[in-house]
Design a protein around this nucleic acid. Sequence first.
DNA 1: AGGAAGATCTACT
DNA 2: GTAGATCTTCCTA
Length: 192
Amino acid sequence: MKSNVTSKNFYKGDPKKVAKNLLGKSLIRKLRDDTLEGIIVETEAYYGLEDPASRAYKGLKKYNKMMWSEPGRIFIYNVHNNWMLNIVAHDLGKIGAVLIRAIEPTRGIETMRMNRPVSKIRDLTNGPGKLTKALRINKKLHGKKVTSKQSEIFVTENNLNFKISSSNRIGVTKDLDKHLRFFIKDNYYLSR
DNA sequence: AGGAAGATCTACT
DNA sequence: GTAGATCTTCCTA
């Protein structure tokens, strides 16, 4: 199995394209004495000033300025007491990010369950706020790169076969008229 | 000080 | 499946 870490180049380009390409990749969270890992099964693309659902819609602010920064960095914000995990992705000079909405846990499941006690394994990481809690992700990771194995959090390649489906984004009050949510068809750990 | 937020949980039909 | 209450963080006034 391939396990090369994703390159910065991987995150350069249209957020929509990057969102699709992130499916099936592994998200790895290094803790002090534990490694948590899962396969990305659901993502959403967000743009800049032209996207009313985007954190960048209202222009440059302190909390959203990461969306203007270097592709491959982590962009984290809080909503309703949940941390949202995004990876900055855009063409040079543009604005954008990909939200990780769900993962399929593959390693460190016992620790995840301690971080986020649930009765059903399915509920462990099948939502953006759920997976951040299970992986102990919070604002401290804001701005970190996912393109280095030295990082506390990074993304690696995989050789997996699957079908991609798409839909409108979830929970967004003003969505754009296109499909910007992508997910692995029929995966058990989708958020819905 | 006030309010909004890309969600989650619970309690139902 | 859907509806309503509720959580905290961080912005904006």
